[in-house]
Design a protein around this nucleic acid. Structure first.
Lengths: 243, 243
DNA sequence: CGACTTTTTGAACGGCATCAACGACTGTGG
DNA sequence: CCACAGTCGTTGATGCCGTTCAAAAAGTCG
């Protein structure tokens, strides 16, 4: 699996042929280790590359002039990071490592070559970009129109189902290596209120917490209060060309 | 410009060659007239197609179980609508006409053919999808981390700069054919509070309002209270293959 | 152990929601 | 041309959810 993080991710959605696997394997130029808390790429920094998370978690965020921060999305292993910056030569967001992490660096030019030589993979990447857009839209609905408790629940549900989609065993709790401050920045709340909502979810028997991990006790009810829809579970690639 | 809405839009970012223009012209199968308030496509409805707005405004929204609604994005003339639904066979959002509108219908299969025959256009579509994702992220930051006044201001700035990017003359005010209820659903506020914030923006001399139109009096200050960044003005396609 | 970050809890405040009512406008049918 | 209904905009009064401020407890790392 050494050269295969990208192929593994894309292979979840499409049966890849040999030449496609090879092309994906050659895509990444270099790896980079990013210790927890480090800025991998700052807003407005030059952005000629994108990343694939190989280990650890990253997140992208925007800093507002008044010092407020919004975390836009969390990037789990095997997912892209920084790909939303493609349309610009300066990064629109800041990328930070939530845990010690390892990323593989992919150059824009390499992505261009991939689209030209493997249009089918291009179409798949397009499709996945649209799926990310929908994920962001779901978060917008959560932040714009639901209560604090629902937002925190939604974050937990989202991470859980993405970890599960990534093949991780979720039955014995999931890691949640984010400070309550970070959870607040992701959900549009203060750290103080995040704390209260987590406690409330625990008191209601929906989750249990143990230093850095969360155990989902009642998945159905939690998804209910969160208004969660697991969209990534049902991605339809049947209309893509066959390899 | 009869066959060229898509070519016109994409031509803003890339100098298209003849064969590409032809391919884009043949992409749309049919047109459809959508009167104001009509649902073009409901959440969960079968979704084998996407749309290009030819006239009028649409918006996509999610309806929460409690009856709350979040408007996710507004689709202006020459923009795509429903393209975020590509990864699924059921539509993730509802598409509604904000004004009487005309859309051109594009089949998923036609898009697939476009990617295969014109990888460069595929890459451009991928890039634009990422740009839409960033626009959504900016809205998330607005809704999650700014005041009611800032959110309303941001909506006005966003629409204004997109209309301008579309070639519309913005100096004598912009149309805003949305009810305050709809503006509230887009910004995560109630219609009542939208009203108050609009009045406040007017009292502060930032905007002027006349039935259905808004005049931006002080663009710099308005962009300031909105934390607005005009990202679409600077899309960089220099790394794409040359035609 | 000491400095720092993170979590937790309490008390008081405020922005936005909620509820309610009225006015302005639009279209429709008599 | 007017009566009427329906939608939308406007304004006031009240209340609650989440913020802000403050401080202590618990965890982490040198």
């Amino acid at each position: 699996m050494n050269q295969g993080f990208l192929a593994e991710r894309l292979g979840r959605y499409l049966r890849l042929v040999e030449s496609e696997r090879d092309a994906l394997g050659e895509l990444g130029e270099a790896e980079r280790l990013v210790p927890r808390g480090t800025v991998l790429r700052a807003e407005q920094a030059s952005a000629r590359e994108l990343y694939v998370v190989e280990r650890g978690w990253l997140y992208s965020s925007i800093l507002l002039p008044d010092g407020n921060r919004q975390i836009l999305s969390i990037h789990l292993p095997c997912e892209f990071a920084g790909d939303a910056g493609m349309p610009w030569d300066k990064a629109p967001f800041t990328l930070i490592a939530a845990t010690d992490a390892m990323v593989r660096i992919i150059d824009k030019a390499a992505l261009r070559a991939l689209f030209e030589r493997h249009p089918r993979l291009g179409l798949l990447l397009y499709t996945l970009a649209q799926a990310e857009r929908v994920a962001l839209a779901d978060r917008l609905a959560s932040v714009g129109r639901t209560s604090a408790k629902a937002r925190v629940a939604a974050l937990i549900c989202d991470i859980s189902s993405r970890l599960r989609a990534g093949g991780e065993d979720v039955t014995h709790g999931i890691p949640l290596p984010l400070t309550q401050e970070e959870i607040g920045d992701a959900t549009g709340l203060t750290a103080v209120h995040v704390n209260r909502m987590m406690r409330q979810l625990a008191e209601e028997g929906l989750i249990a917490r143990t230093h850095g991990r969360v155990h989902i006790l009642d998945e159905t009810r939690l998804a209910g209060v969160a208004n969660h829809i697991d969209r990534f579970a049902t991605i339809d690639t049947s209309w893509l060309p066959t390899g």
